[in-house]
Write a protein that binds this DNA or RNA. Structure first.
Lengths: 357, 357
DNA sequence: CTGAAAGCGCTTACAG
DNA sequence: CTGAAAGCGCTTACAG
């Protein structure tokens, strides 16, 4: 447990100089720096983060809050964020809400994050007004990924969920389907979580644009999971004549739908077409048609945006993208419009024209 | 940014008393405690982790190191660990190695973890002798999950990989297969990572026990991923007459194999049976037979074991299990035998008897 | 049961 | 370019 004093003694300088040399501050002579580094190396010195952060006022840590790390999208986002932060010397504190309201309150409501992290990334986290108030009062930089409801001053990175849903629905329409079901998330369960609401809206808009009346019996709510997809599809099939196509709000639901259809003796795509949104790792293996969204890119971009104001290298938060209006700088309180990343249709084997009746 | 002094002033007590009251130490009168809590509540006070940790010598943080958070097993383990730690007031620092040697060195070799965490969980992390030496010198409690190579004094939680592989192989033998291929991980890539070596050994042992000679052309090495499974299977098929069954070392490889077989025009299980190990979330959807391993349980148990010596409630690390020999206490340096969790065969639709020739 | 004081291991103005 | 000193916000013996 060597401390900075030990290094200072061995190098024959003050602790202030050791501190400066080790952090690469320019106000240290080359010779001194060399001696300090040698001493630190020899003693296997590692700075105490707590002491350093307490004295310096920075935590060197970013918190990321996700609903469930085991779901494809969230795992992929976390991995991308961790990668970037790691390369820039930041620690990542993981908060996996996992539906626990207690955890949610502790993370979002208490000031526990205040003195613990320099910044926050919120991924698809539904926010109640009280949450927004608490987060605002934290007065920390933050970024929202994949969510409509925001915190004032926090930039937003996402896809256009309405457009993605319209693309999926249009693909089915283009194939000739008219009895198109939709399975999506449960609003009661997810509070202000807008993703599934937007996707449902896209589904409805595209149907309307095609002159097709939406049929409530073809619109089933369930959870954004494999099991949710299974249950929603079972429910759908129990309602009578099956649809010729199912648009699932995410790939995991779509995969559940494929399983449920198979168990019901229906073939995909001969009897029922299935399409999702995501381009999950396993979509290819399952032959699932989908609207691909860039998950890792959203995470990376969020991390970049965050570390930029913190004065980290690898800056330029908007690689090739134009931050829609709003201007070029760190305008602070100005309501930043969301950065929208592109999606694209990926056609595989799970979608086909309906059987000639 | 209220601090402890503010609370002390408002409550009319010393900071020492505030500290004690807030931490629930018994040496505070009920009346005083009430006043302190009220004051803290009113001021929205939250302790500064850095100051607390610096003064108290504990970090309240556990580090978890995983190869890739996006792989099913690792994501599931992390989620279980995070859950338990969160409920016990610990933070989780996530290190996702992601194949980056640089990250690996930084995490494992430098003393960076030393003053940063109270304990470490290493999941399926291959360790070189230098890593072991560095970790040992850290002198921190740790637990190894799912790995054969250990750090002296660190308990180990895992399954019996040899036995799991034998179970999978035996299932294929029982169905009547004799041309059984194996696809597994690349030893060069994974260093001392013993999982795939053990699984290969189980495969070979079971074949030998059945009097079947192992055929090197049926044993292909690739990566422990979907793509790895695809590539391995393609390689296998390029070698001539296909096997009648494939035992993949993990479900993700098995899923890749299913996709590759389909692309080659081979049906599962009619032409080729496929079995994996894991019981991945999507195994059911894909109808994949597998040998299930308890991933969340391994994570939970690891977290329990770790927090036990740290004096955390929810103690009893071995729920119903007997820590094989070794004794009951915290014997410290005594080489702890690994805690082995059970696996079980799950038969679905991807395995069937070979076609009558 | 409670307080005054020292100390945790750094970093940061302030001088020089 | 470098050092002495104060301070970051807590917790911990030590007294009482």
């Amino acid at each position: 447990m060597t401390k900075i004093d030990d290094v200072a003694r061995l190098a024959g300088v003050s602790t202030a100089t050791v501190s400066r040399a080790l952090r690469g501050l320019p106000t240290v002579s080359a010779a001194t720096r060399r001696r300090v580094l040698a001493a630190a190396e020899q003693l296997q010195y590692a700075v105490s983060p707590n002491a350093s952060r307490l004295a310096g006022g920075k935590t060197g840590t970013v918190a990321i809050v996700v609903p469930r790390i085991t779901r494809w999208f969230f795992g992929t986002v976390v991995e991308a964020v961790e990668d970037f932060l790691d390369q820039n010397g930041y620690d990542l504190l993981l908060y996996n809400l996992g539906g626990r309201e207690q955890t949610r309150q502790r993370v979002l409501r208490t000031a526990s994050l205040h003195k613990r992290v320099d910044a926050i990334i919120l991924v698809a986290t539904p926010l109640r007004p009280a949450d927004v108030a608490a987060l605002t009062k934290l007065d920390l930089p933050g970024v929202i990924v994949s969510s409509g409801s925001g915190v004032p001053g926090w930039p937003c990175v996402r896809i256009d969920d309405v457009a993605a849903a319209r693309t999926a629905t249009r693909h089915l329409l283009d194939l000739g389907h008219t009895r198109i079901a939709h399975i999506s998330g449960d609003p009661d369960d997810e509070l202000a979580f807008t993703t599934h609401l937007d996707r449902r809206r896209g589904y409805q808009e595209e149907l309307h644009a095609a002159g097709i009346r939406t049929d409530p019996s073809l619109d089933v709510e369930s959870q954004f999971t494999i099991d949710g997809g299974i249950r929603a599809t079972a429910e759908l099939l129990s309602r009578g004549e099956p649809p010729t196509a199912i648009f699932a709000a995410c790939d995991e639901m779509a995969m559940g739908a494929m399983a449920a259809l198979r168990d019901a003796g229906l073939r995909v795509p001969q009897d029922v077409s299935v399409i999702g949104i995501d381009d999950h790792d396993l979509a290819g293996v399952l032959g699932l048609s989908t609207v691909a969204q860039p998950a890792a890119e959203q995470g990376l971009l969020a991390a970049r945006i965050l570390l930029n104001p913190l004065g980290v290298r690898g800056a330029d938060p908007y690689p090739g993208l134009v931050p829609p209006a709003g201007g070029a700088g760190t305008d602070g309180a100005a309501p930043t419009p969301p950065v929208i990343l592109p999606t694209r249709l990926v056609v595989r084997e799970s979608t086909a024209p309906p059987r000639a009746n």
